[in-house]
Every structure is written in C-alpha cells, then in structure tokens.
C-alpha cells in the first residue's frame, strides 16, 4: 500500500512511501546511515487530486525492494507543494521527534477559542518559516495570510501558535523549549507593538526561528489554511500525553 506524505517541516515535499506514518517518521528522523536526527512534521494526504503531481510515477516507482523491504521514499515534488494540496485531502498530521518517535494529531474543525487573550505568537511552518507576533486570533491570522488583497500573502499556510513565556516568572516556566532571555525581551517588545498599534496586525519576531522551534513551545496546536478555509490539529495536553503517548512525550521533552 502506498501512503502519500506532505512534509511541512523542516522542508516542504510530497513523498510516496510504503511505510506507515510511524515508520516513515522514524525513517526520516533517524533511519539512515547519515546519522541525521531532526524533528519532522508531516501530513498524510489522500491520493489522486489534481494534475500537478505525477500519481502514475508514484505507483510505478514506489514498489518494494527485491528483498521484500518496503520502499521508504519516492519524492513526487519538493517545491511549492502545499499550495497544490487541497485542505479536504489532508488527513492526520504527525509530529516526529529528533529520536524518531511519532505522534498523530487528528484533523478537527477549527473553532475560535473562548479564552482568546488578544495577542499570540505564530511559528509559520510552511511554506515560509518566520516567527511572528500578532493580535489576530489563529482563524483571523490564517485568513489574513492567505488573503490576496495585500502584498505579503501566501496561497496556503501551515503554522503553530507558540506559548508566550512570562518575562518576570522564568523560574516557573515549565518545559517550554529553547527561548533565551534575550529573545524573550524582543518577543515582548514585538507583542507590545502589535497590541498597541492600530494599523499593524502582525510583526516579524525572527525570520526563521528554525533551530529554536520544538514541540514543547506549541500552545494550542497546528493550523493549516488556504483560501477555502482552515483546519486545526489540536495539541494534546501533558496529562493526555502521559496517559496515551508517554514515550513520545518524553522524547519531545514535554514529560
């Protein structure tokens, strides 16, 4: 059976594979002799939509090896992939840790949060990757980013909202990843600017934030949006992780 995976972090690609999502995550993170060890976020997609991707090529090339081992990867595209994948074809999202463990985040309908605090930090994952501060809620931010009426816009976007650390209570921060004190000052400056400015709804905090992004920093979850709408992959809380996905929680340094 062939699975189709849209990787959105750290690189954008559409890959056909005979591996299950857990095996694929493990293979991509640690399963080669190159000794790589990196986080990976990918989404399983249904096959057969549109004519941008060569589905016949996938079926021809993604076959088991002569010794019976499954084919790990057949790349179908590595450039401007997300914009050609309709939201309704996207299935679960998977978060793979540096040591190769994978957590499935099921797809859900997006509903605005009741406890919206008025500002947020968003880590854009695909197709671009800045960290931005915004006074827009996730739904508003997604619409803002894919709206074609202003110059800075994208055809589709995947992003995560990031926990904002209290500057004055770093001591009791919890496990929140690799934000240094210096960056925290800058983050709070940027949040202050978007919160106070009536004209500017978003501000870039960091142009890549690539190495600093970890799963510990994710607040509510991950969002995918295009002009047709938005879908939401909620992040389980620590208690649920402990009960259901203990190994992944430890590998992600959340537990």
């Amino acid at each position: 059976m062939i699975h189709y995976y849209l990787t959105v972090f750290p690189v954008e690609a559409l890959i056909a594979s005979q591996l299950t999502p857990e095996q694929f995550g493990s293979y991509m993170a640690v399963g080669s002799h190159k000794g790589s060890a990196e986080q990976l976020i990918f989404c399983e997609v249904e096959e057969g939509f549109g004519d941008v991707f060569d589905w016949a090529f996938a079926k021809e090339k993604c076959v088991a090896h002569p010794n019976g081992d499954p084919k790990s990867t057949t790349y179908l595209s590595i450039y401007r992939v997300l914009e050609h994948v309709p939201l309704q074809y996207m299935k679960s999202l998977f978060l793979t840790t540096q040591d190769g463990r994978t957590l499935e985040l099921p797809k859900t309908e997006y509903a605005p949060a009741a406890d919206w605090k008025g500002c947020a930090l968003y880590k854009e994952l695909c197709p671009v990757s800045p960290l931005v501060a915004s006074r827009l809620s996730p739904g508003e931010f997604a619409k803002y980013m894919v709206k074609d009426t202003h110059k800075v816009q994208l055809p589709a976007i995947v992003f995560a909202d990031i926990r904002i650390l209290e500057q004055n209570n770093l001591r009791d921060s919890g496990n929140v990843g690799t934000v240094s004190k210096l960056e925290l000052d800058h983050i709070h400056d940027c949040i202050g600017q978007v919160a106070l400015s009536g004209a500017k709804p978003t501000k870039t905090v960091d142009r890549s934030f690539f190495k600093k992004f970890t799963y510990q920093t994710i607040a509510t979850g991950i969002y995918a949006a295009d002009s047709s709408g938005i879908i939401f992959y909620p992040m389980p809380d620590a208690e649920t992780l402990k009960r259901v996905n203990y190994d992944w929680g430890r590998s992600a340094y959340i537990l």
Binding site: S173, G174, N175, V176, G177, T178, S180, I254
Partner: peptide, 10 residues
C-alpha cells in the same frame, strides 16, 4: 522539573 525553560531549553 520545569524551571527556566525546562527540558530541552538552553
């Protein structure tokens, strides 16, 4: 135990 950024932080 979850101070100063916790596990995985700088």
């Amino acid at each position: 135990s979850g101070h100063y950024g916790g596990r995985g932080s700088d």
